[in-house]
Simulated scan of single mutants.
Amino acid sequence: MASTRAQGRSGSTANAIDVVSLTKRFGRHDALRAVDFTVPRGSVYGLIGPNGAGKTTTMRILLDIIRSTSGRTAVAGTDSRTGGPDLRRRIGYLPGELILQGRITGRRLLSHYAAVSGPVPPGRIDELAERLRIDLDRPVRKLSKGNKQKLGLIQAFMHDPEVLILDEPTSGLDPLIQREFLGMVKEVRDEGRTVLLSSHVISEIQEAADAVVILRDGVVVEVAGVEVLRRSAVRRVRLQVETRDERALDADLAESGLTAVTRHVRDGLADVQAELGGPIRPLLRALATLPVHDLVLEEPDLQDAVLRLYGTDRPALVPGDAAVGAGDSDEVAR
């Protein structure tokens, strides 16, 4: 099994990825500033943040594609700077800006990658091609962006790497293939291997990741489990309540824990919209004394928590919208 091979190479460290005081400067621009986080073995971590946050820079340093100004990174217990080709064969990498050209077929291109990345189990390439629904006998130059992305995914997964580092992996993929990709990620985790992926698709992170590292302006602002972030998110509340005393209603709502309250009263009915950021019990106690006609309490969403950590001046992300940017614009000052 792939997981057995990976564990045999891993050594004793509990982390698949270690990032310690990582700093990277491009001229006068600090792309990363003292970034610290770890990714335990056998887990899926999301690396998220707005464009320019430092996601792609971090991933490229992990691969030793670029060198840090200071700090240290290790993958599979091996220093990124000294691991060399042997370490990179233990990693599956998909860049955010995947450029594939040429008259050769996808099959020949993947055969070339297989010779570089290490042994690929017999039939593995065809198995992945079938799952991702791509014809490997077509010339690469005639493939659409989505099909080129599928080739990139195949080359990252095909040698059963110990660690997968994937930068915007679902960019250009249709929803059905995105679902298949998420299934592949879960299989990797179940086998005890590790995935670090960046994405602008918050719903994708919510489904695939165990935890997230949130970057903003080159600084880690939060490292937390997905469920922890989700529970900390603000719930949106809508209710309709019968009222003849608006002041009394306002007093009851003030004791309920609701914030950002707006209400519209007509014909003795108050339509109330608000947010709930704390426990739900004070709200239930307050509502128990009121003649409530209707109540909608939305499930907290990971996106709300993430956007609050990004900062209110950041552009909003749309759930399921992968078109924000296939690559990250981290290295604007390169």
Score class of each variant (00 low, 15 high):
M158W: 08
H159M: 12
H159W: 11
H159Y: 10
P161K: 07
P161A: 01
E162P: 07
V163E: 02
V163C: 11
V163L: 04
L164F: 10
L164K: 07
I165F: 02
I165T: 10
L166T: 09
D167A: 05
D167E: 10
D167Q: 08
E168H: 04
E168A: 05
T170S: 14
S171A: 15
G172S: 04
L173N: 03
D174P: 09
D174S: 06
D174G: 09
D174F: 07
P175C: 11
P175R: 13
P175F: 08
P175T: 02
L176N: 13
L176K: 14
I177W: 02
I177V: 15
I177A: 09
Q178C: 14
R179A: 12
R179C: 03
R179D: 14
E180Y: 01
E180R: 11
E180T: 15
F181E: 06
F181D: 02
L182D: 05
L182C: 02
L182A: 14
G183M: 07
G183H: 11
M184A: 12
V185L: 14
V185T: 12
K186V: 10
E187S: 13
E187K: 14
E187M: 08
E187Q: 15
V188G: 01
V188P: 00
V188H: 05
R189A: 14
R189K: 15
R189H: 09
R189P: 05
R189G: 01
D190F: 00
D190H: 13
G192Q: 08
G192H: 08
R193P: 04
R193H: 10
R193S: 04
R193F: 07
T194R: 03
V195L: 07
L196C: 11
L196H: 06
L197I: 05
L197T: 12
L197F: 15
S199R: 10
S199M: 11
S199C: 13
S199T: 15
S199Y: 09
H200R: 09
H200Y: 12
H200V: 08
H200N: 11
H200L: 08
V201G: 00
I202Y: 04
I202N: 03
S203Y: 04
I205E: 01
I205L: 15
E207C: 00
A208R: 05
A208I: 11
A209G: 06
D210F: 07
D210A: 02
D210Y: 06
A211V: 08
V212I: 15
V212M: 06
V212N: 01
V213C: 13
V213Q: 02
V213P: 00
I214M: 01
I214T: 00
I214E: 00
I214L: 11
I214A: 01
L215G: 04
L215N: 02
L215A: 07
R216S: 11
D217Y: 03
D217M: 03
G218V: 09
G218W: 05
V219A: 15
V220I: 11
V220S: 07
V221A: 06
V221M: 09
V221S: 05
E222Q: 15
E222F: 03
V223C: 13
A224W: 03
A224F: 13
A224P: 05
G225W: 02
V226N: 04
V226E: 02
E227M: 03
E227H: 10
V228L: 11
L229W: 01
L229V: 01
L229H: 01
